[in-house]
Design a protein around this nucleic acid. Structure first.
Length: 178
DNA sequence: CGGTTTTGACCCGCGC
DNA sequence: GCGCGGGTCAAAACCG
């Protein structure tokens, strides 16, 4: 991951995810630095997708040691969360994968997707108690199209500096005038 | 030094 | 039941 100068695109999370049913028309009005190729929202994900495994008590390594002092008890105990999280997919035309929306993300995984030669990256919001996830994917067909899928909603203010989209836009105008 | 990325292994649901 | 595909973990590397 390199540090490119990034362009922000309109903050989606609080404004959009907040609503259960998002309207695609909302996004179509937004056409600025990036070229929006589409948006799609899903309220329900297939059941069983969200398995909240937050029990790191026993590690696999310790289990491998296996003297029998500890055993895996909570295999599927903590699977009661059947709340289907809202998901939002953005299709953006951009050169870079990282579309910064103002939140802090920590990458926690990357997987190759079938029918796609580009990997998919998984990010999680680093705010304490905020479990918003997002994944970024690039299309094989159109290398220029980046699909960003948000999952969940933020319940906290943006951590980054106050430069919102307009700020950056105005700065860009200043630069472009030269 | 602390937080983040990298990256391979692990886990789980589903289809065959 | 097994293999596959997709999602997540976590240790080490990395970077400011």
């Amino acid at each position: 991951m390199e540090n490119f100068p990034l362009f922000s695109f309109p903050p989606p999370s609080s404004a959009i995810v907040n609503n259960s049913r998002a309207h695609a028309e909302l996004f179509q009005g937004i056409n600025t630095a990036n070229e929006f190729t589409g948006v799609k929202s899903e309220i329900e994900v297939p059941a069983g997708v969200n398995r909240d495994r937050q029990v790191p008590v026993n590690e696999k390594s310790s289990a491998a040691a296996g003297t029998g002092s500890e055993e895996k008890e909570g295999k599927k105990n903590k699977r009661e969360k059947k709340v289907r999280k809202p998901r939002f997919a953005f299709q953006t035309r951009s050169q870079v994968d990282i579309l910064d929306d103002g939140y802090r993300w920590r990458k926690y995984g990357q997987k190759a997707v079938k029918n796609n030669k580009f990997p998919r990256s998984y990010y999680k919001c680093t705010y304490q108690g905020c479990n918003v996830k997002k994944q970024v994917q690039r299309l094989t067909k159109d290398e220029g199209v980046v699909v960003t899928t948000y999952e969940g909603m933020h319940s906290h203010p943006i951590q980054k500096s106050n430069d919102n989209f307009e700020h950056i836009l105005s700065q860009m105008q200043i630069f472009s005038s030269f």
